[in-house]
Nucleic acid binder design. Structure first.
Length: 660
DNA sequence: GTTAGGG
DNA sequence: CCCTAAC
């Protein structure tokens, strides 16, 4: 049966939780128009592209000028009226009545090297709670003409999946203007009418209705790989698309942890060759389980777009969390735009045919002839970024921050993982044939993931500019724009007990680093790349987008700041002295100058320390705490527990007396 | 505002 | 870390 991919909404790279300008201010500039212009004229070079491209050329991102036209979408939303770093975020972005959050949208073409690797999409999941690592989802059975085909010699065990041949592209320029598919239509298509979402069937149109894009109307979009085409690079005519469109990487924001593939612009890039991260900014992913939970309820209950909802559900059986509420017109537009392109191209292929026939054609076309394996990387998923900045930060710094966040993410030690039928292929020396990556049936379940590179994890991050610290807890425009104050390192108080001097700058130490992000994502990467089984309903990705402001309405969750060993040491020492139950004193004693550690935090930490000390070392996670410390924890805990018991025993009699 | 404990 | 009850 024909599967179609219905995707909803995310065709952009979003950096959530940056307060967005209020509607009023947004109106000042016709975002939509601008976005369209940018889209159609293809003049908005991806920031990402810029980063990656420049980086590939050896330039330091620090010196990367972010031109306006390169940041089309970003500035449309956030950087209004700004002239390089003079506008206060606070003024324009934070102190607004509506709680909407801004989204930095990076979505442009990535014009990197001509590597022949087909990166169809980079999606940035929104949901941090789903630590889905970057992932590449590939599918080889149904390349469209605008895709790159990964062609590999099955005997070449040294093959880099990026060094592959690529197919030509053939975008019809005329399609660039039509981008919004009719939702219902798409739904029907998916329902198995076997009609390929293409040219006519996919009569997309650009809706100029802002509301349409405002996240209130679910929309659909792209054809999935399930649309079978006969393969072969040769089949496809050279693209007439503008050069800019070529080698396009789409950055898509997603907040689900589900694997999904999306058809977007073909592109090339060298994911693994990006330089090391820029580590001096705090980037952090936000864990907000409760928010998501809440949003989830809303999603399930409030959506009346039945059709879409159905699809949504059927598509995402393992769905756990709501997608982003922050969907913006331009993003969708672009997305649809891409979709239409792709879909229209499908026409030329085996239109309306089931997958089987095409698959067969494919397998014979290359496998038997050249013993090559052609892979199509349908989607790259890059972990989401959360950025937090002080409201007083300048727009210029915001730009730099975003730049660095993206750079850090892309360049910060990502490696490629290969999965076949859900199983990780670890042996790099095996040939494709040996690994079973040679028959199309297998290739279908082949997936690539962008995984955190172990060698990069733990890269120390330091910041010399506190005003630019990135962190994650800023959904709320004003209330919590963190005051990342510069800790006065020299201000050691004359406390009776040592006030861990190194805690003073603990904002640095414990602030999340890009490495942390990747690490966290990686911890769950096993789910990240499950190749989409053909015909599986998950080919659909329709996302309701109503919960737009649900999250922003809630107080944001603080960033997670794991206790360092030093902090634990200090905590233990204080508790040994003061005992449990006097957390305020503990705080004052040992963490007085550490703002982000409240006495509740200390109490919680002690709780977990006790627990940690009781479990086997194998069960422990995170930075290992020296056993010596854990022993002290247990000792102190038991001691003070006894003391408390005694206290109560003492009081008991008196209480009895009082009662009498 | 603190403390304690569940989530 | 969050949330809350209880103090």
């Amino acid at each position: 049966m024909l599967q179609k991919r219905l995707d909803y909404g995310f065709s952009g790279y979003q950096v959530p939780f940056i307060p967005r300008a209020a509607r009023s201010s947004r109106k000042r500039r016709p975002i939509r128009e601008k976005a369209v212009a940018v889209d159609n004229q293809l003049c908005a070079f991806d920031l990402l592209a810029t980063v990656a491209g420049k980086l590939l050329e050896g330039e330091s991102s620090q010196n990367l000028p972010i031109e306006k036209d390169q940041l089309g979408d970003v500035q449309d939303v956030v950087m209004q009226d700004q002239d390089e770093g003079t506008l206060c975020l606070k003024d324009e972005l934070c102190d607004k009545g509506d709680n909407e959050v801004a989204s930095l949208n990076l979505e442009l073409g990535l014009q990197v090297q001509d590597q022949g690797c087909n990166v169809k999409e980079i999606s940035v999941p929104q949901n941090d709670a789903s630590p889905a690592p970057a992932s590449v989802i590939t599918s080889s059975h149904c390349p469209e003409k605008d895709e790159y085909l990964v062609k590999m010699d099955t005997n070449d065990d040294k093959s880099d999946f990026c060094s592959l041949s690529r197919s030509t592209e053939g975008f019809a320029p005329g399609h660039t203007d039509s981008c919004v598919p009719n939702v219902n239509e798409s739904v029907e298509d998916h329902d198995g009418k076997g009609e390929v979402l293409s040219g006519n069937g996919l009569d997309m149109h650009c809706s100029e209705d802002p509301e349409f894009f405002d996240g209130n109307s679910p929309a659909v979009a792209s054809s999935d790989c399930s649309i079978k085409l006969s393969l072969g690079v040769d089949h496809y005519p050279c693209g007439s698309l503008s050069p800019r469109r070529d080698n396009n990487v789409k950055v898509v924001t997603r907040d689900d942890d589900e694997n999904s593939s999306e058809c977007t612009q073909p592109s090339t890039m060298k994911p693994a060759r990006l330089p090391a991260r820029i580590g001096d900014r705090r980037i952090r992913k936000l864990l907000a389980s409760k928010h998501w939970r809440l949003a989830s309820k809303v999603k399930d209950g409030d959506h009346s777009d039945t059709g879409l909802r159905c699809i949504y559900r059927s598509r995402r059986t393992g769905y756990k969390r709501p997608r982003s509420q922050r969907i913006y017109p331009f993003k969708k537009r672009k997305f649809y735009h891409y979709s239409s392109l792709l879909n229209s191209d499908v026409d030329d292929g085996c239109k309306g045919n089931g997958s089987s026939s095409c698959d067969a054609g494919q397998s014979t076309s290359f496998a038997s002839r050249e013993s090559h394996v052609k892979l199509r990387i349908k989607s790259f998923r890059v972990p989401e970024l959360f950025i937090e900045m002080p409201e007083t930060a300048t727009v210029g710094s915001l730009k730099r921050t975003v730049m660095e966040a993206v750079t850090a993410l892309l360049g910060g030690g990502l490696r490629v993982g290969v999965r076949l039928q859900g199983k990780k292929i670890r042996d790099d020396n095996r040939t494709l044939v040996q690994s079973g990556i040679c028959h199309d049936d297998k290739v279908e379940s082949l997936g690539f993931t962008l995984e955190p590179n172990p060698s990069h994890i733990g890269t120390p991050v330091s910041s010399e500019d506190n005003s630019l610290l990135l962190s994650t807890d800023v959904p709320q425009p004003v209330s919590r724009c963190p005051t990342l104050s510069v800790n006065n390192q020299g201000a050691s108080h004359d406390h009776p007990v040592r006030n861990l001097g190194n805690f003073v700058e603990s904002d640095h130490d414990s602030a999340p680093s890009p490495a942390e992000i990747t690490a966290e994502k990686g911890s769950v990467d096993s789910r990240a790349l499950v190749a989409l089984p053909e015909g599986s309903p998950q080919a659909l990705a329709v996302v309701p987008s109503h919960q737009k402001s649900k999250r922003s309405e809630m107080a944001q969750r603080r960033i997670r700041r794991p206790f360092s060993v030093t902090e634990v040491e200090s905590l233990v020492q204080a508790v040994e002295k003061l005992g449990t139950g006097r957390w305020r004193d503990v705080k004052l004693r040992a963490f007085d100058n550490v703002k982000h550690r409240t006495y509740v935090d200390l109490k919680d930490k002690w709780k977990t320390l006790v627990h940690t000390a009781r479990i086997s070392p194998q069960q422990r996670r995170g930075e290992p705490v020296p056993q010596e410390l854990l022993d002290r924890v247990l000792t102190a805990h038991s001691y003070w527990s006894q003391q408390q018991a005694k206290q109560q025993l003492k009081q008991q009699p008196s209480d009895a007396c009082l009662l009498l």
